[in-house]
Computed example of a mutant assay.
Amino acid sequence: MRVLVIEDDANMRLALDVALRGAGFAVDTAADLPEVDEALSVYAYDCAVVDRMLPAGDALDYVAARRRAGWRVPVLFLTGRSVPAERVAGLAWGDDYLGKPFALPELLARVGNLCRRGPAPPPAAVLRHAGVEVDADRYEARRDGRPLTLTGKEFAVLEALVAAGGEPVTRAALIAAGWDELVPPASNVLDVVIAQLRRKLGDPPVLHTVRGVGHHLG
């Protein structure tokens, strides 16, 4: 399994390189975003460990742009920006988020989990239900023909809801679609995304809550 580490601090970059190699991963490192472009043009990765604040800017914006272009490599943000609002912003486009300082065994476990999961295969067809359309190949969503501008998490949750064809989707299933099993079902990250989706989908309301179960479209 090959991991790309993106970290501008030389000591931290070396420590991560040594620890991941010691755990059996193949590792490449980059100190800034131009090096990331070069690495991604050469190798396929099973996971990327990404510091957010880099000399070229916030790596969250970089990952978001890559996601919109169809990049599906699991991303773990490893950063000192770990207040709840920053974590929610990071999880909109990343797959996991770990604040500094961190416990090395936890980092290795999270990286291993993301590598085993691997990139999600793109769906083969456009999904439609209740006037909502999701095209995962093009990374586009629409309601009644109106384009929707969605974050990565919003897109993943909406895709799961549309795929269910109106049947209720549990909180656990929606969290699994957009995050991973390390996010507890009681976490409010899903509630934030559901509220954002309702606002973006507009009126009349099409996204409904089934108390004690989850959510559905219809």
Score class of each variant (00 low, 15 high):
Ser82Glu: 01
Pro74Phe: 01
Glu35Pro: 02
Asp58Met: 01
Thr209Gly: 11
Ala26Glu: 15
Asn113Ser: 14
His129Ile: 05
Asp32Thr: 12
Cys115Asn: 00
Arg143Gln: 06
His129Gln: 05
Ala177Phe: 10
Tyr139Glu: 13
Ala173Arg: 15
Pro55Gln: 01
Trp179His: 12
Asn113Phe: 12
Phe25Gln: 00
Lys153Met: 14
Met1Lys: 04
Leu54Cys: 05
Asn11Gly: 07
Ile194Cys: 01
Arg116Cys: 09
Glu38Leu: 14
Glu35Ile: 00
Val183Asn: 09
Arg171Glu: 11
Asp9Thr: 08
Glu106Ser: 11
Asp28Met: 08
Val83Gly: 13
Lys153Gln: 14
Pro101Lys: 01
Glu167Asp: 14
Glu35Ala: 14
Arg87Lys: 14
Val73Asn: 02
Ala56Pro: 05
Tyr45His: 07
Gly165Val: 07
Thr29Phe: 08
Ala39Thr: 01
Thr29Gln: 10
Arg142Trp: 06
Ile6Asp: 01
Ala186Ile: 08
Asp96Ala: 15
Trp179Val: 00
Asp32Cys: 12
Leu33Ser: 09
Thr79Gly: 04
Arg116Asn: 14
Val162Gly: 03
Tyr139Asn: 13
Lys153Asp: 14
Arg66Lys: 15
Glu35Leu: 05
Ala109Met: 09
Ala44His: 14
Met53Ser: 15
Leu182Pro: 00
His129Lys: 07
Asp8Trp: 13
Gly90Met: 11
Gly178Cys: 07
Leu78His: 11
Pro147Val: 11
Ala176Glu: 14
Val75Tyr: 09
Leu190Thr: 01
Thr209Gln: 11
Ala130Tyr: 10
Arg116Phe: 04
Pro185Cys: 07
Leu217His: 10
Ala44Val: 10
Pro74Ala: 03
Ile194Lys: 11
Asp96Val: 03
Gly212Ala: 02
Tyr43Val: 01
Leu107Met: 12
Arg52Met: 10
Val42Pro: 03
Ala125His: 15
Val132Arg: 05
Gly178Lys: 09
Ala164Cys: 14
Gly70Tyr: 13
Pro119Asp: 02
Ala48Lys: 02
Ala195Asn: 13
Arg143Tyr: 06
Tyr97Trp: 01
Leu190Tyr: 07
Ile175Gly: 00
Val49Ile: 08
Asp46Met: 06
Ala44Pro: 09
Gly218Glu: 14
Met1Ile: 00
Arg2Asp: 12
Asp95Gly: 06
Asp191Thr: 11
Arg199Thr: 15
Thr170His: 06
Pro185Ser: 01
Asp137Ala: 15
Arg198Asn: 08
Leu197Asp: 06
Gly214Thr: 00
Glu106Thr: 13
Leu161Asp: 09
Thr151Leu: 15
Ala89Cys: 04
Asn188Pro: 03
Ala124Trp: 02
Val189Tyr: 12
Gly57Leu: 06
Gly94Met: 07
Arg128Ala: 13
Leu16Gly: 06
Gly118Val: 10
Arg142Ser: 09
Leu190His: 02
Ala130Ser: 15
Arg138Phe: 05
Ala164Ser: 15
Arg171Tyr: 06
Ala89Pro: 04
Val3Lys: 04
Leu16Ala: 01
Asp37His: 11
Val5Leu: 08
Leu150Asp: 01
Val157Met: 12
Arg87Thr: 13
Gln196Asp: 14
Glu35Val: 00
Lys100Gly: 06
Cys115Ile: 09
Ser187His: 15
Asp96Ile: 05
Tyr97Gln: 00
Asp180Gln: 12
Ala136Ile: 00
Gly22Arg: 02
Cys47Ser: 05
Asp137Ile: 12
